[in-house]
Design a protein around this nucleic acid. Structure first.
Length: 893
RNA sequence: GGGCAGUUAGCUCAGUUGGUAGAGCGCCACGCUUACACCGUGGAUGUCAGAGGUUCGAGCCCUCUACUGCCCACCA
C-alpha cells in the first residue's frame, strides 16, 4: 500500500467515499478487528449494545459507533488485545409486531390464525433476512468491531444460555409465579414493564358518581373517577379511617349502580381524604392502588376486560363493548338514572404503551417474576464501592436511587417471538419445573413424559439482553473467550436504558459470573436536530446518518458527534458543524498533500525527536506536539473524548498548518538538499504522530494520509499510540511565541493602517537577549509578516541610531517594532492609538499592583501565582515605558 | 410531588484539581503569498441567567430565585 508515496499525485480535495470503502475493506481483510488472545496482557473489552433487528440506522447508532470505536481504536493502539463485540437484538415486542403487520398485509391473517409454529417460522425467515442489515450499516460508519464474534440474542448459543440462567434462578427460588396487578398492553396483548409505559398528561374528565347506601334510602356516597368503566368491577368503596364524614358508613353496604351488586365501605389509610370526595371506588382488578386496598381488606377481584380491552362477561350489559365505548355508554346510563353528580375537566397522567401507543390497562394476571432484592443488593454495592463507575458521575445516583426502590421484575410476556420460558407443567402429577434443555424429556417428579406442556409465554427481551456481556462470550461454557475477556471494560450506551439494560447486566453479571460485567459505564447524549428537538419519524426531522456520511464523510460525522458535546449531554447536530469537520479533514488532506508535493522519495521515516541543534521552529513544533500527546493521552484516559478531539483540531490547524507549515516553506525551498530534508523530516514526524492521535476520531482520512507519508508499519489502525515523552523545550516555546507576537503585530498594524503595499519596511528593536533570535528568524518575519527582506533592520535598544518618526509602531513583550511609512501616516491618529494602548496597559498595571499590594494575596496565594503576577506587572511596566517613549518621540515631530 | 441537567460573543458550543474568558460558524475589512476559497490575514462583539455567600481571588464551590429541558412518582 505504501508504494503510492511520491508516485501518485494527490487530488486537490479529499474524497471521503473512495478512501472509506478502500480502508475498511483493507482492515477487514487483514483481520485487525479481531484481537489476539495474549494471556500476558490485560485485554480491553467493549460489548456493543446490540441494535434491534427491526430498527433503522439512526444517529444514536452513529453516536455509539463514534464513541465506542474511538475508545476501541485508542486501546488497540495502546497495544492491548482489544475486543469490541457486535451483535443484534431480537427486539421482543417490536420484532413480533413487525412480522404481524407483514403477515396481515400479505394474507390478512393474524398470528393466532397462523398459530405459534407457523408464525415463528415466518419471524425467523424475516430475521434471517434483516438480522445483519443494521449491523452492516455500522461498517459504513467505520466500526472496527470483531465481526467474527458477532452474536444474536436469539441464536442457539444465546437460547441455551437463557435457559440455563432461568433454570438456575428458578432452582435458587429467585423466580416465582404470582398474580399481581400488571401493565397490560391491549395493542400488543402482552404484559409490559413499568419502564415501557409512558405517562402522558392529558385533559380528561373527573366523573362524580353516587352510590346509594343500602337500607338508607336517599343517602349516597359520592365517588370521583377518571375511568368510570372500571366501576363494573368495583368491589368496595374506600375512605380514610380518619375521615369523620364517613365514619358511620364504614362497614355498611352500598349498591353498585348499573350492576346492582352490593359492595362494602372500607376504611384504608391509602385514601387521601382531601382529594375528590374522599371516597374512592375500589376496583382491585383494574387499578394498582385499589389492588393494594383489596389485598388489605380481602376484597374479591373482578376482571371485567378481555385481553383486547373489550368488556367481558363480568361487565353485564356492556359485554363486548370496547373500553372507551363502554365508558361513554356507562356515563350516559348513569346520567339517565340519576347517579351522575357532576363532571369536571381534569388533567391527569394517562399511561401509554411505549410499543403500541395505546392506553395501558392495569389488570391482574398471573406472571413469572424475578425476585429482585437478592440481585439488586450486590449490584448496588458495586456502584457504591466504585467497582462500576459512571461517566458522567451523576448517573451513579440515578442508578442507585432506582435500584434502591426496585420492585420484582415481571419477566413473562404473552408473545410468540422471544425466549420461550423453560418451565414445564406435568399434568399427570402437577409438577412444575424448569429445564435448560430444549424440552423436558420426562417429569422430574413422576417420571411421566406424556402429559408435559411448556409454559406458553416468552421472556422479556431484556432478560437475554441482561446476559449479553457474558452470553456473547460463550457462557455457560467455560470458553477461552469467557475466561479472557470477562469482565469487560466499558459499557457505552444511552442514558435512557440505564434501568432497562445497564442495571440488569450488572445484576446478572454479578449473579452468574461473580463479577461486574464492566468497570465503567459511559453514557452519551441523545442526538437532536438543529433546533434541539428529538428526532422522530412523526416529526419528520430524522436525519439519516448514512445521508450525512455520503455528504460529509464518515469521519466528519463522527468527529462532529464526538467534539460537539460532553458525555451525558444531548447534542444538536447541525450542518455547519458537519461542514466544519469535513473542512478539517480536507485541511489535513492538503497539509499532507503539500508535504508530499515537496518530494518525499527516499525519505526514511523517523519519529519527531527533539534535539538542541534543530532550528527554533522545529523545537517549537516538537515541543507543542509532545504537549498535545500528553494532553490527549490524559483526556482519553479520563473519557474526555470531545476535549481530546478539539485539542487535536486546534493543534493541527492552528499550530501545525497555520504556523509550522508556513515557516517550513523557507527551508523546503532551500537549495541545500540537507536543509530541505531535515525540514521534511520534522514535518513528516510531527504530522505522522498527530495522525496517530487523531485516528480514533477520524479513522479513514488519517489512515489514507498516513499511508501517503513515510511511516513504519502496515496500517495506522495497528500503529502505536504516541508515547508521552516530555520532549518539551520551554525556552523554544517562549521564543517562538515572541516571534509570533512580532509577526502578528506587523500584520495587524498593516491591516489597521490599510497599508497597500504587500511588502513593507520594518525596524525591530529587540530586547538584548532576543536580538540574535530575531536576526536568525529574519526570514520568517519577512515571509510571514510581509516585510521586504532588504528593508528589515534589527537592533537592540542601544544600537538603534534614531527612532523613525514617520512610522507605525507597536510594542510586544520582546520588542518595539517600527514600520516606516513616510508620508502615508497620520501622526495624530498614531498618537491617539498609542495613547489608547497606554491607557490599557496602565489599567493592567493598576490591577496587578492592587492585587500585589493585598497582603493576604501575597501570603495565601501559591508562590507560583504570586510570581506570575509579579512578572506580569514587570512586563507591563516595561512595555509602558517603551510606549511612553514612543509617544514622546512622536510628540516632538 | 420529588430529583437531575442546562442557562458563557448574533448562532452552536468548549472551559475537571478556583488564578486576569475560548473555538467554529456568521459578520466587517483585506487577500490568487506556487497545500488548501472545504483557503489565508486582520477586526468587532461577553456585568459567563439573576441575587446573596465562602475565598486573597469564583464561569468554576455553597444558598436562593427565574426560565428551559429531562428523569422518576399508584392521588382515584
Amino acid at each position: 500500500m505504501s508504494d503510492i508515496i511520491g508516485k501518485k499525485e494527490m487530488e486537490k480535495a479529499y474524497n471521503p467515499a473512495a478512501a472509506e470503502a478502500k480502508w475498511y475493506a483493507f482492515w477487514q481483510e487483514k483481520g485487525y478487528f479481531t484481537p489476539k488472545i495474549d494471556k500476558s496482557k490485560k485485554p480491553w473489552v467493549c460489548i456493543m449494545p446490540p441494535p434491534n433487528v427491526t430498527g433503522a440506522l439512526h444517529q444514536g447508532h452513529a453516536m455509539f459507533v463514534a464513541a465506542e470505536d474511538a475508545m476501541t481504536r485508542y486501546h488497540r493502539m495502546l497495544g492491548e488485545p482489544t475486543l469490541w463485540l457486535p451483535g443484534s437484538d431480537h427486539a421482543g415486542i417490536s420484532g413480533e409486531t413487525v412480522v404481524e403487520k407483514l403477515i396481515w398485509k400479505e394474507s390478512k391473517q393474524t398470528k393466532n390464525d397462523l398459530g405459534r409454529e407457523a408464525f415463528l417460522q415466518r419471524v425467523w425467515q424475516w430475521m434471517d433476512e434483516y438480522r445483519d442489515v443494521i449491523v452492516q450499516q455500522l461498517e459504513v460508519l467505520g466500526a472496527s468491531a470483531d465481526w467474527t464474534r458477532k452474536a444474536f440474542t436469539m441464536d442457539p448459543p444465546r437460547q441455551r444460555a437463557v435457559r440455563v440462567a432461568f433454570k438456575r434462578l428458578f432452582d435458587e427460588g429467585l423466580i416465582y409465579r404470582a398474580a399481581r396487578i400488571v401493565n397490560w398492553c391491549p395493542g400488543s396483548m402482552t404484559v409490559i414493564s413499568d419502564l415501557e409505559v409512558d405517562m402522558v398528561e392529558e385533559l380528561g374528565s373527573l366523573w362524580y358518581i353516587r352510590y346509594p347506601v343500602k337500607d338508607q334510602p336517599g343517602r349516597f356516597v359520592t365517588v370521583a373517577t377518571t375511568r368510570p368503566e372500571t366501576m363494573l368491577g368495583d368491589t368496595a368503596v374506600a375512605v380514610n379511617p380518619k375521615d369523620t364524614r364517613y365514619t358511620d358508613l364504614v362497614g355498611q353496604m352500598l349498591t353498585l349502580p348499573l350492576m346492582n351488586r352490593e359492595i362494602p365501605v372500607v376504611a384504608d389509610d391509602g385514601v387521601d381524604a382531601s382529594f375528590g370526595t374522599g371516597a374512592v371506588k375500589t376496583t382491585p382488578g383494574h387499578d394498582p392502588l385499589d389492588f393494594e386496598i383489596g389485598q388489605r381488606h380481602n376484597l374479591p377481584i373482578i376482571n371485567i376486560m378481555n385481553p383486547n380491552a373489550t368488556i367481558n362477561e363480568n361487565g353485564g350489559q356492556y359485554v363486548g363493548l370496547d373500553r372507551f365505548e363502554a365508558r361513554k355508554q356507562i356515563v350516559a346510563d348513569l346520567e339517565r338514572e340519576g347517579f351522575l353528580v357532576k363532571v369536571e375537566p381534569y388533567t391527569h397522567n394517562v399511561p401509554y404503551s411505549e410499543r403500541a401507543g395505546v392506553v395501558v390497562e392495569p389488570l391482574v394476571k398471573e406472571q413469572w417474576w424475578v425476585k429482585i432484592k437478592p440481585l439488586a443488593q450486590p449490584a448496588l454495592e458495586a456502584a457504591y464501592k466504585g467497582r462500576v463507575k459512571f461517566v458522567p458521575d451523576r448517573f451513579k445516583k440515578i442508578y442507585t436511587d432506582w435500584m434502591e426502590n426496585l420492585h420484582d421484575w415481571a419477566v413473562s410476556r404473552q408473545l410468540f417471538w422471544g425466549h420461550r420460558i423453560p418451565i414445564w407443567y406435568c399434568d399427570n402429577c402437577g409438577n412444575v419445573e424448569a429445564t435448560d434443555e430444549e424440552s423436558l424429556a420426562a417429569c422430574g417428579k413422576c417420571g411421566h413424559s406424556d402429559q408435559l406442556r411448556q409454559d406458553p409465554d416468552v421472556l422479556d427481551t431484556w432478560f437475554s439482553s441482561g446476559m449479553w456481556p457474558f452470553s456473547t462470550l460463550g457462557w455457560p461454557d467455560q470458553t477461552e473467550d469467557l475466561a479472557y475477556f470477562y469482565p469487560g471494560s466499558v459499557m457505552e450506551t444511552a442514558p435512557d436504558i440505564i434501568f432497562l439494560w445497564v442495571a440488569r447486566m450488572i445484576m446478572f453479571g454479578i449473579h452468574f459470573m461473580g463479577d461486574v460485567p464492566f468497570h465503567t459505564v459511559y453514557l452519551h447524549g441523545l442526538v437532536r436536530d438543529e433546533k434541539g428537538e428529538k428526532m422522530s419519524k412523526s416529526k419528520g426531522n430524522v436525519v439519516d446518518p448514512l445521508e450525512n456520511v455520503r455528504e460529509f464523510g464518515s469521519d466528519a460525522l463522527r468527529f462532529t458527534l464526538l467534539t460537539g458535546s460532553t458525555p451525558g449531554v444531548d447534542i444538536k447536530l447541525s450542518r455547519t458543524r458537519l461542514t466544519d469537520s469535513r473542512n478539517f479533514a480536507n485541511k489535513l488532506w492538503n497539509a499532507t498533500r503539500f508535504i508530499s508535493l515537496s518530494g518525499l522519495e527516499g525519505l526514511e521515516y523517523q519519529p519527531a525527536t527533539l534535539s538542541a541543534d534543530l532550528p527554533l521552529a522545529d523545537r517549537w513544533i516538537i515541543s507543542r506536539y509532545s504537549q498535545v500527546v500528553k494532553d490527549t493521552s490524559r483526556m482519553m484516559e479520563n473519557y474526555q473524548l470531545g476535549e481530546a478531539g478539539r485539542a487535536l483540531y486546534d493543534f493541527l490547524w492552528g499550530e501545525f498548518c497555520d504556523w509550522y507549515i508556513e515557516v517550513s516553506k523557507l527551508r523546503l525551498n532551500s537549495p541545500d538538499p540537507a536543509t530541505k530534508q531535515a525540514s521534511q523530516q520534522v514535518l513528516v514526524g510531527v504530522l505522522e504522530g498527530a495522525l496517530r492521535l487523531l485516528h480514533p476520531f477520524m479513522p479513514f482520512v488519517t489512515e489514507e494520509l498516513w499511508q501517503n507519508l513515510p511511516h513504519s508499519g502496515e496500517s495506522l489502525i495497528v500503529a502505536l499510540w504516541p508515547e508521552a515523552n516530555d520532549q518539551i523545550d520551554l525556552a523554544a516555546v517562549s521564543q517562538f511565541e515572541a516571534l509570533q507576537e512580532v509577526i502578528k503585530g506587523i500584520r495587524n498594524a498593516k491591516s489597521e493602517a490599510k497599508v497597500e503595499s504587500k511588502r513593507v519596511a520594518a525596524i525591530i528593536v529587540a530586547k538584548p537577549e532576543l536580538k540574535t533570535l530575531f536576526e536568525q528568524q529574519a526570514e520568517s518575519v519577512t515571509r510571514l509578516a510581509g516585510v521586504e527582506a532588504s528593508q528589515l533592520q534589527i537592533f537592540d535598544a542601544a544600537g538603534l541610531p534614531e527612532a523613525p518618526r514617520q512610522a507605525l509602531s507597536f510594542v510586544t513583550a520582546g520588542a518595539t517594532v517600527y514600520l516606516p511609512l513616510a508620508g502615508m501616516l497620520d501622526l495624530a491618529v498614531e498618537r491617539s492609538r498609542l495613547a489608547k494602548e497606554i491607557e490599557e496597559v496602565q489599567k493592567e498595571i493598576e490591577k496587578a499592583e492592587r492585587t500585589l499590594s493585598n497582603a493576604s494575596f501575597v501570603d495565601r496565594a501559591p508562590v507560583a501565582v504570586v510570581a506570575k503576577e509579579r512578572e506580569r506587572l514587570a512586563a507591563n511596566q516595561e512595555k509602558l515605558s517603551r510606549l511612553e517613549q514612543r509617544l514622546q518621540e512622536l510628540a516632538t515631530v
